[in-house]
Amino acid sequence: MDRIPILKMGAFLLVTIQVDMHDRLAMALQDDLSNKIVETGARGVLIDISSLEMVDSFIGRMIANIASVARVLDAETVVVGMRPAVAITLVELGLSLHGVRTALDVERGMELLETALADGPR
């Protein structure tokens, strides 16, 4: 089965979703990512969804879930590069991903993570 690669960059993990997500893939990603955070002790996770063209309510909820799980494991999560159509769909579905940080692109997402970790209480 395909898996979404998780790359380690310094203190952060970088997840780039390049394919259309289906339910099993999203579940596998949640599993892999939580394991990887614990394994590497990462302080931040950056999820790049700029290639994701279609979302349904399940995928939307999985993105929110993955972010929540990462937060429980003490890693800040930033979702970057959401397309306009995807953003509109998620809002129409009533999923506004409260509590998930967002940024326009990977570069700004990295900056956001760095400042969040520098300012953070820890």
Binding site: V79, V80, M82, R83, P84, V86, A87, I88, L90, V91, E92, S96, L97, T102, A103, L104, R108, G109
Partner: peptide, 12 residues
Amino acid sequence: LKTVSAARLMGV
């Protein structure tokens, strides 16, 4: 509010 939420999702 919808517009604001959608913009926020894109990091704006």
